[in-house]
């Protein structure tokens, strides 16, 4: 989905998650690889549709603003995507929902990002957080209904 419209895709991604603007080249590669991996198991028509949506969004402001999406300032980009997500056209809304989901997957799927937002879940649970974990009764039935 990404190679032909990388610039367009990244400008959309940064509008959806402004923190993505801080990604370095390696970070972007990681985000894009996660998205490509997620799309690999999806039907080809879905991938085609998303590629088309990225390109359509990139060129859609040309008439009104005389610039491509990736050349607009943040406020205008936000305005455009807000219109798209509220569009009366369900196809457009769900297309944007799909794109948004993929961007969020690529970004928040990164362990660096999860750490940076303070996500602490650990298989060791209470022990990982506090060095100990509370114990309750492990057998016997209480309050089955």
């Amino acid at each position: 989905m990404i190679p032909p419209g990388r610039r367009a895709f990244r400008s959309l991604a940064v509008t959806i998650v402004p923190g993505a603007a801080r990604l370095d080249a390696e970070g972007w590669q990681d985000v894009e690889a996660r998205i490509e991996a997620a799309l690999r198991t999806r039907p080809p028509r879905l991938r085609r549709g998303l590629r088309l949506l990225v390109l359509a969004l990139e060129w859609s402001p040309l008439l009104r603003h005389r610039r491509r999406f990736s050349r607009l300032d943040d406020a205008r980009r936000t305005q455009i995507l807000d219109r798209v997500q509220r569009s009366p056209n369900l196809l457009l809304r769900r297309g944007f929902w799909g794109l948004r989901t993929l961007v969020l997957l690529g970004y928040y799927g990164r362990s660096e990002v999860r750490r940076s937002v303070g996500y602490r879940a650990d298989p060791d649970g209470w022990a990982a957080l506090m060095g100990d974990f509370p114990t309750g009764p492990e057998d016997g039935i209480e309050g089955g209904s």
């Binding site: 959806i16 998650v17 989901t101 928040y108 990002v113 940076s116 879940a121």
Partner: peptide
Amino acid sequence: FPFVTAKSLVGFGATNESFLRAFP
């Protein structure tokens, strides 16, 4: 988890991100 939480917020942009950055 972070991804599921992020996609569960309606909309996009800085306000949504600020909720995620408040995860704890």
